[in-house]
Nucleic acid binder design. Structure first.
Ligand SMILES: [Mn+2]
Ligand SMILES: [Mn+2]
Ligand SMILES: [Zn+2]
Ligand SMILES: [Zn+2]
Lengths: 142, 142
DNA sequence: AATATACATTATAATAGTTCTAAACTATTG
DNA sequence: CAATAGTTTAGAACTATTATAATGTATATT
């Protein structure tokens, strides 16, 4: 449980009060080997299970958005019918599995830098991200 | 008004009845020089203005989805808070202006082919699309 | 440690975007 | 000119998200 102290400090650093809901949320989100993608519903389920009690949906929304504003989380728009968040807040590319609706991060080394030859006058480029949609290869070839 | 006949034929070809709502929708969507991006609300407004009468929201939704299924329209996921559609149904890249929330198509020649070095086993790549987020360049440099 | 304050959580209500429903309407077929 | 199948419509229902306001908790002040 030494990890919790880290989260309390981390929360304090960015001016968020370390309530038990937020610390638990940090555990669920950040106390893991690899970054991951989730929906609000996923998250509510995970937190409720780990706390053995309900957490208010509004709190999850508010806190996710607070984390987003502080740069702890990033919103990913892949499917207009669903909102995905990402604990990997860097600019990065994704595979999207159209069968399972699963998002998979693309390593820097998996894709060559994208070369953009045009620019919009008066505008600067903030990010360049690639989305690769994949689906199962059931070609039933004769 | 010779164009309308084209739309009637076009609709028949794909098995949609050429009702006056659908023909009007075709005019608004396809009777123009360049392809464009729109939201359902944009479209309802445009159609209502051009018909000088209300069109049911349900009809616009239903017909947009019918067109989408038939491959006349493509849904674009840029902003999970809003659904954009595109009359350019090809696989293509976009600039997204974060100031105005405007989508701009990227010409094939504006960007070098994206080279993907990894693949997901058992999955084939269906599309590779790049999203370039831009914003005004007010660097107020001294 | 007790109190005051600011901030957070909660249940619930409100909103907005989208889809469903069933009745009225229209295009097509015979 | 029916009969039929498909379409439009208004409005209800549904879902995701945000707002509200009362209650609770963390922190600062004494
Ligand atoms: Mn958001
Ligand atoms: Mn859709
Ligand atoms: Zn990611
Ligand atoms: Zn486009």
């Amino acid at each position: 449980m030494a990890k919790n102290c880290n989260f309390i400090d981390k929360l304090r650093e960015v001016g968020l009060r370390p309530t038990k809901q937020r610390v638990k949320m940090c555990e669920v989100l950040f106390n893991r080997e690899k970054t991951f993608h989730f929906t609000i519903n996923d998250l509510v389920k995970m937190i409720s299970e780990q706390m053995n009690q309900k957490i208010s949906l509004a709190t999850v929304y508010n806190t996710v958005h607070a984390f987003e504003k502080k740069g702890y989380l990033k919103e990913i728009s892949i499917d207009s019918h669903k909102s995905y968040f990402d604990t990997n807040t860097s600019i990065h590319h994704h595979f999207f599995d159209e069968d399972t609706h699963e998002l998979i991060d693309c390593d820097e080394s998996d894709i060559d830098p994208v070369n953009i030859k045009k620019n919009i006058t008066g505008k600067k480029i903030n990010s360049v991200e690639v989305l690769i949609k994949v689906a199962s290869d059931n070609q039933t070839q004769k």
